[in-house]
């Protein structure tokens, strides 16, 4: 009976994994084919990998696009993890009627489609450009700023803080730790799986962000990966081989981040509270 159950679970997971991974397999195959074959749905690897790669690197500055995307994603993620977790922690641990109201108001900011905010936000950054051109329109900081803290992550941290043991805090207070010390030395290490999850999601969101960077970045030398991929498809006769090559290169960083951070989702990693 148990064997049957185990067999069923493995079969199910393998099928799900296949369905999930099939499009990625297709991407990998397509980056080795030439455009005409790809649009005809060729499912076999071809011999055009190096040609596609060299075409991509010769015609497009993919190196600087990778750097820009990486810079945006890392800076936004690191800041977001600190600022949002502080807020999520603050709202839950020092809960009060007033804070609950403010928290609910903050959630409102998630509820409007970004397309509706774009024009006012662009105007805001137009104003910022007049005073601080270094963080205004056409800079990487303008891409990052609206994402250094979002209600989504504050909400995530607050919900996870609900599962955090208050006894640990009381014990730390007894030991004479300051409130900020408790946050950094007790809470952060204990919640590292939540930080890992938030880190993955934030990195991915920022890496894949399209609409806002599109609008706010103008110069060709500060494009991000999604903008570059969008450009590749801009022609009347797009070269799908090159497009897939760029897509694969653009997918690798997020996949790697996930791969390295997923060990925090393994049971038995928690429990150690010492900083």
């Amino acid at each position: 009976m148990n064997k049957l159950k185990t067999g069923f679970i493995y079969t199910l997971l393998s099928m799900v994994a296949f369905i999930s991974l099939f499009p990625f397999l297709w991407m990998l195959i397509s980056m080795t084919n030439k455009s005409v074959d790809i649009s005809q749905g060729r499912l076999l690897p071809g011999g055009h990998l190096f040609e596609n790669i060299s075409k991509l690197f010769e015609n497009y500055d993919i190196g600087s696009a990778l750097f820009n995307s990486f810079f945006i994603a890392v800076v936004a993620t690191v800041l977001c993890l600190i600022i949002s977790s502080l807020a999520g922690y603050g709202f839950e641990i020092y809960r009060s009627k007033g804070k609950d109201i403010v928290f609910n108001i903050l959630l409102l900011s998630l509820m409007i489609p970004f397309a509706a905010l774009m024009v006012p936000l662009f105007r805001l950054f137009g104003g910022i450009s007049q005073v601080f051109p270094a963080i205004g329109i056409d800079t990487l900081y303008a891409v990052i700023l609206p994402y250094v803290t979002t209600a989504f992550f504050i909400f995530l941290f607050r919900q996870n803080t609900k599962m955090f043991s208050r006894e640990l805090i009381e014990a730390a207070r007894m030991d004479g730790l300051s409130e900020i010390g408790i946050f950094f030395r007790i809470y952060m290490p204990a919640m590292k799986n939540t930080f890992a999850a938030a880190g993955i999601i934030s990195f991915m969101n920022n890496w894949n962000n399209y609409l806002w960077p599109l609008v706010v970045l103008q110069s060709p030398d500060i494009k991000t990966i999604p903008l570059l991929i969008s450009n590749l498809g801009s022609g009347y006769s797009p070269d799908y081989g090159v497009i897939y090559t760029a897509i694969v290169i653009g997918t690798i960083p997020t996949a790697l981040i996930f791969f390295f951070l997923q060990r925090y989702f393994v049971e038995g990693m928690t429990g150690s509270v010492k900083g």
Binding site: F122, F125, I137, L211, L214, V215, P220, S230, N231, S234
Partner: peptide, 21 residues
């Protein structure tokens, strides 16, 4: 170089916000 739909979005956002920057 920008895709056509990208140009349409950027132009509309810029022109309607009055920020010609």
């Amino acid at each position: 170089e920008n895709a056509q739909k990208d140009i349409v979005q950027k132009l509309n956002t810029g022109l309607s916000s009055g920020t010609l920057n």
